[in-house]
Design a protein around this nucleic acid. Structure first.
Length: 128
DNA sequence: TGTATGACCCTGA
DNA sequence: CTCAGGGCCATAC
């Protein structure tokens, strides 16, 4: 599916060159990660490690982060449901990304406090 | 070709 | 709580 090269304005850096090479099927890996993200139910959250695991890429949390950064806007991924280990927002509290994520989560009824969410809303690995 | 960096994670002190 | 150290690996320069 020829995804658009346009990335999210909140994270996409000017002059970023979209490269899809290096691995056998880099696009397949990205799609697997994006799919895992879109599978997170509303009102719940997951972690980068959890997303990577769900995509069949254990130990590649970093790659999950990359995938999200490179994700085209058109996919409308629920990126705000992806947090760091333990359920904490990885963005600097002063950043617009942090505020946006916070806002979106609260809009779904998720309580964000001190840049973290309650354990209960955090999706356990292997959990739906 | 080598070094640096990053929407990460875990363990241990 | 902070800090350090190791792992992971695609991109950028």
């Amino acid at each position: 599916m020829a995804s658009s090269r346009k990335v999210h304005p909140l994270f996409g850096r000017a002059g970023a060159t979209p490269r899809r090479q290096g691995a056998a099927d880099p696009n397949a890996v990205l799609e697997a990660l994006w799919q895992a993200v879109s599978a997170i139910p509303r009102g719940r959250v997951s972690t980068y490690g959890g997303v990577a695991l769900a995509a069949g890429l254990p130990g590649r949390a970093r790659l999950a982060g990359r995938a999200l950064r490179e994700a085209p806007e058109g996919l409308n991924l629920p990126w705000h449901r992806v947090l760091g280990a333990g359920g904490k927002i990885v963005f600097p509290p002063a950043s617009s990304a942090y505020r946006e994520q916070c806002r979106r989560l609260r809009a779904e009824g998720v309580v964000v406090k001190g840049g973290r969410v309650d354990r209960a809303v955090l999706l356990a690995p292997g959990e739906r």
